[in-house]
Amino acid sequence: MRTALILAALALPLPLAAQDTPDVSLTRIDCGQATEPMPLGGFDDTGASDGMTRDLVVSCYLIRHGDDLMVWDTGIDPATSGDPDGGFSMGETLVQKLAQLGVAPADVDYVGISHYHYDHVGQARDFPQATLVIGRADWAVIEAGSPWVNRDLFVPWLDGGAEVRQVGGDLDLFGDGTVKLLAMPGHTGGHHALLVRLADMGPVMLTGDLAHYTSNYEHDRVPTFNDDRADSLASLDRFKRMAEAYGATVVIQHEPDDIAKLPAFPEAAH
């Protein structure tokens, strides 16, 4: 009996610190800026933000996990840069930015998408060989066709030329706890945030569009265009509890003030 217990204990996964994990880094990449201060009424269904405006940014990220590379969110489509309907403009493309880091599109193993909205998927097709990692409910919307989605951005995966990894809940991408997609539905049905555990900086949590700017995050305000209000509030609560439990640095991806929480491009957090 004692031998069986010992063998069972040996089979348990080791704590993260005891594992021989690869080096992990996180680089923030500029993928767009608001062409002018955005009206905030639609970002808050309580009416508290009516008549207010503010600048927003579009952020992409490169995560290095040993020899594996993952891009998290891909910004706006360069073809829409400066379009008043989209509200964002950009200078260099994501591919051009990655080239400055010595990364070619073919080097990217995974493209992780927080959700299917245009300002998060605009350059996904520039990585046609990568595995697309996306919420299952969001992929269903893309496959079905929706006025929210430009299907041309997903041709490599819709045509079966590259793998799609559909995520129903949380996903520990590399199996060692360092890069984890967190199911945070509400903004869309398959919306995910991202947890990256760094050796020096510690845990960093990227929000996706759980909140678009600090005051909405702090006050649990829900955009009028979210899929589900109750799910949105539940996800905000879970995210905040996790951030507190982990002692994580929270980075709101559209918040200009949060850019400085990570090293300035081309430097990476470790």
Results as ranks from 00 to 15, higher is better:
R229Q: 12
R197G: 03
L40R: 05
M242G: 01
L94N: 01
A106M: 05
M205G: 02
Y213P: 01
N150L: 09
S25C: 06
G41K: 08
I29Q: 02
S59H: 03
Q123H: 10
D68L: 13
V108D: 00
V103S: 03
M38Q: 14
R241K: 13
R241Y: 03
D109L: 00
Y61M: 09
Y110C: 04
V155I: 12
H120Y: 11
H65G: 04
T214M: 07
D257L: 09
W148R: 15
L173T: 07
G135D: 04
G168V: 13
V58L: 08
D30F: 05
Q33Y: 13
D50Q: 13
A260Q: 12
L5K: 11
V222P: 00
A17N: 09
G177E: 09
M201V: 14
Q129A: 14
G32I: 09
A104G: 11
V58P: 02
F174W: 05
A269H: 03
P266N: 11
E267L: 12
G75R: 01
M242E: 11
V204L: 06
M70Q: 07
D209E: 14
G177W: 08
T74S: 15
D30I: 05
R197V: 12
L101H: 06
D23T: 14
T35S: 15
V179Y: 01
P105S: 10
N226Y: 13
L195H: 03
M38P: 03
A140S: 12
A106K: 12
D209Y: 02
V164K: 00
A4P: 00
M38N: 07
I113Y: 01
G169F: 04
E143M: 09
L98S: 03
V179S: 07
Y217N: 05
G186K: 00
K261P: 02
T53Q: 15
L153N: 04
G112W: 01
E218W: 04
L233Y: 11
H219Y: 09
W72P: 00
A269Q: 04
G42R: 13
Y118G: 07
A260W: 04
C31R: 00
D68F: 09
A248T: 06
T3F: 12
P84A: 08
V133I: 14
